[in-house]
Write a protein that binds this DNA or RNA. Structure first.
Length: 214
DNA sequence: AGTGCGATTGACT
DNA sequence: GTCAATCGCACTA
């Protein structure tokens, strides 16, 4: 009796169970804690024919009373998803060309969140290459606009609950996160001195200038 | 109704 | 390294 030949479906089940969906209770309440917590966790987008997934390797926190946060001047039609309970997606369109994915933080009514700035691709790499119009693995999801493009994230996913049973979700870490680095946030002009950017050190999929990634 | 600008990217000197 | 593209939205009037 051979044990080596498992049915394909059983192998698939076993492989998939390495990553479990994160629930609301898994997410720290505080935006800074959440930004650090998400490093190393998995971002998954299940499309009809393919699963896109990757390790989150760079994040930024946006807080209450933070002039750089979109919520600074209160709720508007654009930023309302940022005020949802933690774990919801806030997808924002910027520079006339790029979408960016945030994970809302805090309780409902609090406009804080975490920007996903870079992801190390794991599954669906061929599709990501096609959509991103590049074969360079390192460039697929290095930068917030690229993350959204590689993972096919656009306005329709704004407000999605990433801790529910939807197609876009957060998963546990496939591999534990390495040492976490900190720096100021990239590309902002207000409250620019605050150290609210977090990344996995020595990971080549992290964006940003070298001086910030020491 | 008009204006300014942004949590960026890709192309180019 | 520099720089233009591009457009939805918030703000002013």
């Amino acid at each position: 009796m051979s044990q080596t030949k498992l049915p394909a479906i059983a192998q698939g089940t076993k492989r998939r169970s390495r990553i479990r969906r994160l629930g609301l209770r898994d997410l720290p309440l505080d935006a800074v804690d959440l930004a650090k917590y998400l490093i190393g966790k998995t971002l998954v987008h299940d499309l009809p024919k393919v699963r896109l997934s990757g390790r989150i390797v760079e994040t930024e926190a946006y807080l209450e009373g933070d002039a750089a946060a979109h919520s600074f001047r209160g709720m508007t039609p654009r930023n309302r998803s940022l005020f949802l309970e933690r774990g919801h997606a806030y997808v924002y369109f910027c520079y006339g060309a790029h979408y960016m994915l945030n994970v809302a933080a805090g309780a409902a009514g609090i406009g804080t969140g975490v920007l996903i700035r870079a992801v190390e691709p794991i599954e669906g790499i061929e599709q990501m290459k096609r959509w991103r119009h590049t074969d360079r693995l390192l460039d697929l999801a290095r930068g917030p606009g690229r993350v959204a493009a590689a993972f096919k994230i656009g306005k329709p996913l704004d407000g999605e609950n990433l801790c529910g049973d939807g197609n876009l979700w957060l998963g546990s870490a496939a591999k534990p996160a390495g040492p976490i680095g900190e720096s100021v946030r990239i590309g902002i002009t207000k409250d620019a001195h605050r150290v609210l950017r977090f990344y996995e050190r020595e990971n080549p999929f992290v964006s940003g200038p070298k001086r910030l990634n020491a």
